[in-house]
Design a protein around this nucleic acid. Sequence first.
DNA 1: GATAATTCTGTTAGCGCTATCATAGGCAAT
DNA 2: ATTGCCTATGATAGCGCTAACAGAATTATC
Lengths: 342, 342
Amino acid sequence: MSSPSTPPKRPLTLRDVSEASGVSEMTVSRVLRNRGDVSDATRLKVTEAAKRLGYVPNKIAGALASQRVNLVAVIIPSLSNMVFPEVLTSINEVLDETPLQPVFGVTNYQPEKEESVLFEMLSWRPSGVIIAGLEHTDAARAMMRNADVPIVEIMDLDGDPIDAIVGVSQRRAGREMAEAIIAEGYRKIGFMGTNMPLDHRARKRFEGFSEALAKAGIEIADQEFYSGGSALVKGREMTATILKRSPDLDFLYYSNDMIGAGGLLYCLANGIDVPGQVGLAGFNGVELLNGLPKQLATMDAERHKIGRAAAEIIAARTLGQDAPQRVELTPRLQFGETLKRP
Amino acid sequence: MSSPSTPPKRPLTLRDVSEASGVSEMTVSRVLRNRGDVSDATRLKVTEAAKRLGYVPNKIAGALASQRVNLVAVIIPSLSNMVFPEVLTSINEVLDETPLQPVFGVTNYQPEKEESVLFEMLSWRPSGVIIAGLEHTDAARAMMRNADVPIVEIMDLDGDPIDAIVGVSQRRAGREMAEAIIAEGYRKIGFMGTNMPLDHRARKRFEGFSEALAKAGIEIADQEFYSGGSALVKGREMTATILKRSPDLDFLYYSNDMIGAGGLLYCLANGIDVPGQVGLAGFNGVELLNGLPKQLATMDAERHKIGRAAAEIIAARTLGQDAPQRVELTPRLQFGETLKRP
DNA sequence: GATAATTCTGTTAGCGCTATCATAGGCAAT
DNA sequence: ATTGCCTATGATAGCGCTAACAGAATTATC
């Protein structure tokens, strides 16, 4: 089971290719990177030798010598919430057309973990950083400020960015949903969400929501929080609980679509008239919703656009082109069939 | 807005910390890596200086010098199917307790993309590779064989591994599902799946499934394939289509839970008696299912265990410990409420 | 007090590549 | 020929760190 040539045990280096093709290491390097003038004849000799040997360049040495690294650090809180894989997918899409390569890190919503992941990633001297949220430890902020590469904070817009920022205003999203609900005539409003003090985006949405209600002289009539477990199940359970406790609620706002979908399924199964007796709304615009018996009202958080825009900023800045410092996307309210229209 | 000391424009090196603390670079290096004996006094001086300057070590240089890289390449086909983020999450969990750091790459189910992602990753000389599936281009296989690091192929078990392998037999999973369906007395069986010739796992499941049916003298009565779009919606649509075309079907097997859930919702909405008139089953055991009005029969693909086991193999081998070459996990059939029991 | 054993710290030489400059050859214009 | 100006290739010197060894300082042992 050996290659056409000799089975390489000691890892191959440029020198091996150089010897195999009878030209200098420098010329091999040039051929392999398509840089500088090389005659077609030598180019051929070299590529042929490299392929025959199965040479894989050592980017570590290359990066050290050239002081250039084609990696982009991407730091997100979790992979369990589909929102983040979606953002990653679109970042990937954009970077695929560039020499840049994303590297993902997950923080589990823990600031200290974020700090250590960031440190680890910066020690690879990436060409840019894309990081979720605006809340970081002081040390993390300092590291990013000192890193001297483009930093893009994504998802959220309410706060002071370190460098560039792309996202939606979570506060405004909450506010607009509240306004729509009030406009439709609902008055006894319940809220359900995750019990994650470190999910700043959910928190801000909630703040914007209650703020707008307050402005209309309304207070949240009841609320429920959950943590862990299947969101869909929790949505059912919390809905059952809250409606039992406060049967006079006429609207339920869920901090994410998954629990919203659970709530919707609960209502449908229990003969609750939606949106007549109770209106429902979630947040995020997950694809899943399209398949439900009834379209849940929601707001699209523009996750794909966020990923794309962030990656494009990094790509542009890496090439020395200038790029926007702030991209504000506006979530669209989708009424679906659970927030009645005038 | 400058640090306590001077604002670092030229990136800091060991030398800067060395000068700031009055010891040699080597000693600084030792302190920062907790290696070798260093007196408490100097240790303190150094850590203090490093922190004050905001020094971030350059792993590129470190890796080159030490010939050690703490990265593990993880290559998966997609992030859109929750299965893969789940695997990543558990890989992450395990590696979090080691000095190793996962780096993810996505292939979009394209063999050539896989090859290029692999090449790119191997050029960073990772300590190990975890890659989904057993089907790779010849060049990709050759690269992995030559890389001289642990390789773990995951998810699938039907084929020849390069090195270690962790997964479930997809063929057997399909077969067992077929046997259970037959045992329950269903005879007119329809199949619905993705139209992805490159999703080898789905293909093998289907092969195992039809093979087992054939053994019982049964042929698939009708089938539907989809590609793209929301799986839940597609599940509804395909179910409507297939039942219209073949109203005598008494069982529907879906190649994944998402379309299965769509089919279930369709049946429930249209007054079709499940599992009396029509039985249903999917594959994967996604958490989502628990929240549905009726529990869909499915098979758990053991994704978390797969991720953990793969990461553990890499971690062990990295430390020179030995580790299993083959971990066979067995998906458990969950009957739920859509595959009637004796 | 001398020697050995044990800390602790420093010196030197690369890791595998690329930037930079130097040089060899080819060819046109003078 | 001579000069100039290309194109194609090579030689040299590092990138920032760590392995390996060397040496200094300290302590232990007789």
